[in-house]
Design a protein around this nucleic acid. Sequence first.
DNA 1: GTCTGACCTCAAGTGAACTTGAGGTCAAGG
DNA 2: CCTTGACCTCAAGTTCACTTGAGGTCAGAC
Lengths: 150, 150
Amino acid sequence: MDALSIGEVAARSGLAPSALRFYEQEGLITASRTAGGARRYPRSVLRRLAVVRAARNVGLSLPEIRAALATLPEGRPPTTDDWARLSSDWRDRLDEQIAALEQLRDGLTSCIGCGCLSLDRCALSNPGDVAGTGGAGARWLRPALRRAPG
Amino acid sequence: MDALSIGEVAARSGLAPSALRFYEQEGLITASRTAGGARRYPRSVLRRLAVVRAARNVGLSLPEIRAALATLPEGRPPTTDDWARLSSDWRDRLDEQIAALEQLRDGLTSCIGCGCLSLDRCALSNPGDVAGTGGAGARWLRPALRRAPG
DNA sequence: GTCTGACCTCAAGTGAACTTGAGGTCAAGG
DNA sequence: CCTTGACCTCAAGTTCACTTGAGGTCAGAC
């Protein structure tokens, strides 16, 4: 009654079963097992997944989310205080992202029609630096928004 | 005098030589060759690369940028009108991204402390849907901002 | 004449966040 | 008993925007 199968959690959360297994592997959620080896999730996993999704939307990576979740109690839903702390951190992040985009947009607006696009000085080509990357692979900054389930 | 080597273009644009070769391969820029086979770029490539960077900052993919560049004259710098058209399109994109982030932030703000995070109704978990993905691989929405060169 | 540095090509690797596929188990229904 | 469906594991594939590495060419300085 209180134990959900992976299929049920997938349906209710909008995540694919493969994503749920992956999240477990990454330490974002946990599951008990039936005698046969099938995963059983407590209902609270849905709320936890909602938190994960919110964090992803804010632009956190899975390791960062894991760290944030580690500050929450594993077994029971987060208290009002827990949630207030996390969500206020995330709001700050969003504010930063919005500010960066606005800066870029304003630079763009002031550039329209001027053809000024010079490498060192145009606000468009050189938005306020936001983060460094380093290493190989695709290097982009935080994604703005991710899709929510249908 | 008017022909730049790949090393010079890399230094002036802040892009790695490998990135310049890659962009050429992807059809974003072109280069002539010396007798020995080394690339020679006209000075205008710097402006073109600035446009590419601006477009990346706005969140366009390389194929999208290629399409946008295809509407510009290849040999000479874009006219004021060309640039006005592109940059106004991009500004609209930025406006959309900003609006989506603000919606998310406002949902987050209204959620702080309420612990309401319910799967179907919370604005945080379900921001206004912005785009669909589909297919395999990493699926995130447009990155917010990319770093400019030092 | 050889060394150095800048350049070349082509194939394969990188990171993130998952998905896909192959091959197998388990419980319930007919 | 056999099939169907839901589940399991583990390895490999996917996208994007590049980087890295191996192996080679070429021009100028010493």
